[in-house]
Every structure is written in structure tokens, then in C-alpha cells.
Design a binder for these strands. Sequence first.
DNA 1: AGCAGGACCTGATGGC
DNA 2: TGCCATCAGGTCCTGC
Length: 274
Amino acid sequence: MPELPEVETIRRGLEKVLPGRKISKVDVRYSGSIKMPTVSKFTAKLPGRRVIKIGRRGKYLQIFLDNESVLVIHLRMTGKLIFSFTPLTIDKHTHVIFTFSDHSVLYFNDIRKFGTIYWLPIKRMYEIKGLACLGPEPFSPEFCPGYMAEKLAKKKTTIKAVLLNQEFVAGLGNIYVDEALFRAQIHPQRAAASLTQKEMAALYRAICEVLQEAINCRGTTMSDYRDATGAYGGFQQLLRVYRRSGKACLVCGYPIERIIVAGRGTHYCPNCQK
DNA sequence: AGCAGGACCTGATGGC
DNA sequence: TGCCATCAGGTCCTGC
């Protein structure tokens, strides 16, 4: 579920509380969540490590530890990281529990069990394929209309499929792709290579704007998403097309449609988006 | 090479 | 109420 704005919101929440804390106990209740190393090594060797800082790359969260190692966490669709100064009730969706030496706790919950956790030396982070293959961060100088022009010219698929591809740009997911395409007035099924310079400039601007506004709102909560303190996001109030099928376009009044593009539910205004 | 579609899981929702 | 089908914000693998 969480896309860049949600992961960034979680990162900021954890950055306020985790640095300096020392892990005293690790409890893995669903072993499928731990991709690296083995579960027994994970639980035996993590205690004693201290958190240095919290990073993010695309939708990957990075918890840097004091021995040049890092916990890399991907929340996929329904994963949550909840920090509490005191223990909380655990349920069947609580898969990993990190307890710190002052008895504060970090819970990894995930209804659909798609989320993944890796622990490895920083210098081996490239072994996580999805992380190694990530395209530029949307707010980095590398991501710009010129970069888009060069990449899009070679693509033979729809613009929506390209925006969802993390190798093109890191951090976009289904919600923000639909919202960015609406703001740029581009139809999601347009051939990526058919965009004009002007459209690419508008799309670049729309991507940065929608992500920044969503970060300012602390993310979008449709159903499952919560930040590190358990709080909802607020951007769902500002969505213009996502899950608004049948409702009037906020610009022209035409009904928003829902179709499938790149295998995903896609929302757009047939009148505004060409 | 690059893309579409299924697989991975569970829960919510809507139709009959 | 119960059963079934469909849908869900992401990535990885397979096969075309």
C-alpha cells in the first residue's frame, strides 16, 4: 500500500524516536517476513545493536545500525511499522516485534504478509534486487524533464506502466500515478513515447507536486495505512480521481471512469485527459 | 529485451 | 445469514 509519501512519513516518525535506542529482543512470529539472513540469526544477533538513523530509498525504509549494518523494510500493500513507548496488544497480524532496552517497542504488522525485512551489512545492500534497480528519487536533480524524454522515447508501453515501474522513477504507486496523470491532463493509456515535450514538463511538475502535497498531508489512508504513531494520513481528502469513478470531475464535471491499465485499477477523466 | 499476467496472502464488500 | 466472486495501494517470476 504505502507509496513514497507514506514511507517518508513513517521515516520521519521513526527518526524522532529510534536513533540511540538499543535493541534488546527480537521476536519473529511469521518467519516469511524475514528474507535475510535466517530467522535464527536474525533473532540471535540483532539484540545489542543500536539504531543510528532512519533512511528511505523509493518505498524501502532503511534502519541503519551501529555496526555498519542496516535493516531494510518494504511494507508492500498492507505492512505497518508502529512504535510505542510501552507494549501494545499483539494480534495475528503482528509478525515481528523489536523490543528496545528501555522497553519501548517497534511492531511490524502486515495483514497480507507481503511485506519483507532484510538485515545485512550496508555494503551488501545491492543484493536486494529491487533496491539496487531503483530509478532516481523524484525530488533528485537526476529526475527532470530531460531524463524523462530520454527514457520515454525508448518505451513501448503505456505511460501508466512506465510510471509504476520503479526503475524509471522510485516511489510512485497506483494512487499517485493516477493523480499525477490527471493533473498533467494525460490519458493513462497513452503510449509513453508519444508524449510531447510540453506534456513531459507538465507530468514532471505534476509528479513532484502531488508527492510533495501528499507528504505535507502525511500520506493517504484508504483503509490500512497508518504512520509510525498509528495516525491516519490526510491526503485522501485531496484525491482528484483515485477511487472517484462515477463522480463528477472536479475540473469539468464529466464522470470519472475506471478502467484497467497495466493490470491495475485506473481512474481518469475521459474529458480532461487526452 | 521488454512486456503482460499470474503468484504471493488475507480481508472487505457486494450480489444472489 | 451464508456463500461466492471480485477487488485491494506492490513486487517478483514466468513465459510469450
